[in-house]
Design a binder for these strands. Structure first.
Lengths: 118, 118
DNA sequence: TGTCAATATGCGAATATTCTAATATAGTAC
DNA sequence: GTACTATATTAGAATATTCGCATATTGACA
């Protein structure tokens, strides 16, 4: 039971664990948006956005509404927006490290890991 | 810049996106713990725990303290505990879906995806 | 009916993650 | 020094994710 809970939570985190999906979730935390709208806002081609939306859908993180030709997506639960907001705070509290993490991920990670060994 | 921010956040989410690492983070949100303590608490063999700790370390989510033979880990920032707490709330608000998600992940996901198509 | 626009899905190659098992490092005690 | 304990790292096979591209589906409209 405790195990299922962790598996579920990990699933949600993993669903949010991609820059494009973070971008999508952030857009949706400000209100519903169509797929083409998301595609433009996030700057990723339609079929790829659709695939990422499928990931979010499979974890029930988003809901949809059909309007004629288009499909509008929204976040399922405001708690998710809260999580994103916490993460925003975390980002600003750790900007310096954030930059370092990103720099390390740019270069080979091999040497970086050495330096971080306790 | 907005992009780096998302990449950073996605990195944090991804680091939390594994059941074992969720379990570790939850343990640490209640206080510091040694590697062997975590290994026992989480029920995963030492070398595997160590690998998961390396993932958390590489994202600066945890800090360490040496005491003689052992190394004690703790969460770097209480904000992370907040994130976990939000996720706990989210889990209880969506238990029913949680169970369904887990059931689907048990079976082949192929047919499940069909049913969730909007 | 046919055509267009919006969205979703299938496929395949490249890449990343995960686990297990073996090995390495570091501290303690004798 | 050796032996023992705690922790970290490496290697390799199995598995999963990601993207681009092609194709399918669905709704609107003439």
């Amino acid at each position: 039971m405790l195990d299922s809970m962790r598996q579920f939570k990990a699933g949600v985190f993993q669903a949010l664990g991609h820059p494009t999906r973070v971008a999508i979730a952030e857009c949706l935390s400000r209100g519903e948006m169509s797929v083409s709208g998301l595609s433009e806002a996030v700057g990723v081609e339609q079929s790829n956005v659709s695939q990422h939306l499928a990931v979010l859908r499979n974890k029930y993180l988003v809901e949809t509404r059909k309007d004629g030709n288009q499909i509008f997506y929204r976040l399922r639960d405001p708690l998710l927006a809260d999580v994103l907001e916490k993460m925003r705070q975390y980002f600003f509290a750790h900007m310096n490290e954030a930059m370092e993490v990103l720099r390390e991920e740019q270069n080979g990670a091999a040497n970086a890991i050495q330096e971080k060994t306790p």
